[in-house]
């Protein structure tokens, strides 16, 4: 495992910690897109189904997968229960049907194999690349975002951005390549790029 891969995974963990910390300390979920959070849960559940049969292959991967699914479900639980009064659906209006539909079409057209787990894996990769859009859309609508929310989005974006040099390293040193993940990862990073730019300049 190279430094970029570890950095990416660490960044992903940090983003989750920031999000949960923000909700618990402010006792609210203001500024957090519920739709994006639901998309992430769908992403993790469809991608990490392989926990059922690859659990023993890598303790690191399996542990991370459980953390990602668990924390994502917990975030949604908090938004639906404890902090429900602070959630305003009127500003969280992005049409996620298109994101889910588009990802499903791409997954069905170009999976590595036409098996349930491969199609779901591919679906999760495409969906992850666009899952932040409801959150960015919400940020744009409300204008000023809390600093903590921008830190969350930055850490989450850095995760997939760091996977790009990781793929380059793996291509050069391990002859490893994963076209679906790479193309979707680049799209994902481009979607964040405008946000990254604003984050750096503010």
């Amino acid at each position: 495992m190279n430094i970029f891969r570890i950095g990416g995974d660490l960044s992903h963990l940090i983003s989750i910690f920031i999000l949960l910390h923000k909700m618990r300390t402010s006792k609210s979920c203001i500024g957090i897109s519920f739709k994006s959070q639901v998309l992430y849960l769908i992403v993790y559940v469809t991608r990490y189904l392989d926990l059922l049969w690859t659990f023993q292959h890598s303790t690191y991967n399996s542990l991370m997968k459980i953390i990602f699914i668990g924390s994502s479900a917990y975030t949604i639980y908090l938004m639906l229960n404890d902090f429900k009064p602070t959630h305003d659906p009127n500003i969280d209006t992005f049409k996620v049907e298109y994101l889910i539909g588009g990802s499903a079409i791409l997954a069905l057209l170009f999976p590595y194999k036409w098996t349930t787990s491969e199609v779901l894996w591919s679906f999760s990769i495409w969906l992850e690349s666009v899952a932040i859009l409801p959150q960015l859309f919400m940020l744009q609508r409300t204008g000023e975002a809390e600093t903590i929310t921008t830190h969350y989005i930055f850490a989450l974006g850095a995760y997939r951005a760091l996977y790009i040099p990781n793929w380059l390293c793996r291509y050069l040193f391990e002859n490893f390549t994963d076209p679906i993940a790479i193309i979707a990862g680049i799209i994902q990073t481009i979607l964040y790029s405008d946000f990254f730019y604003i984050y750096y300049t503010k």
């Binding site: 995974d9 991967n61 990602f68 194999k113 491969e118």
Partner: peptide, 10 residues
Amino acid sequence: VAATPLKDEL
């Protein structure tokens, strides 16, 4: 078709 390699990334 070759077996799909194990996904070793997150």
